[in-house]
Amino acid sequence: MSALASRSPYAPKAGGLVAEAAASWLLAIFWILPLLYAVWTAFHPAEFSTRFELAAPLTLDNFRRAWAAAPFARYFLNSVLLVALVFGAQVILCTLAAYAFARHEFFGKGIAFALVLLQLMIMPDVLIVENYRTMGTLGILDSIPAIALPYVASAFGIFLLRQTFKTVPKELDDAARLEGANDLQVLLKVYVPLAKPVYVAYGLVSISYHWNNFLWPLIVTNSVESRPVTVGLQVFSSGDQGVDWAIISAATLMTSAPLLIAFLVFQRQFVQSFMRAGIR
């Protein structure tokens, strides 16, 4: 692929290449600047937050103080439980539904599929008022399941897995059935193993989305025991921390760190997953 690209008659040469490289670096620096600024602030004492001196001493003190000032350990635990619950439930529900749509003929299939796709448009993110009321009726306000439930049946996941299951050769399916496997066994032994890369891709997208999700968790949670890190960060930085940017920057980086580090380590997988999940 790259060898072919280098021979493209429109690949920039000499002067053009230098100009294009310079422009792309300039944009990259500009693009990363706000983040670098936060990193600078987080790793230096507060008096250097807005003064840039190479000799400024590095410190982890801001992280220590942020960690001590709010129950971030609990927030992290909540977020981990949340993304695990959401993705676990999504895998089960979406796999079953996708199998039904990909390899079963049943009455009302077309209408059911259209109804599922409707959720791509009417997203839970928008139905906050009614969903809040539903959680109240169910008596589970301010709990991790309340954050997770509106998202567990994901039209996106069903669609993605249905497309994947449809590419599985029918012969494999038939062969498994001839050997006496029942419907569910065929799904678990033939379809699910073949769709593994798609599960990984969907997992990265789902986990990123729900680790980062904010508005609905903000609405539905009200206590330390159920808040995910995003809401915890907001409560922390809008509280009495006031204008101590060094600590707020440290807390901000801390909450983004798991995904950021995972991204830097597994860059290729992240980019490919987002791509695979996006291109339909």
Binding site: N212, T230, L253
Partner: peptide
Amino acid sequence: TPTVLPMIA
């Protein structure tokens, strides 16, 4: 990189 950061961050 900005894509993987939470909007709140």
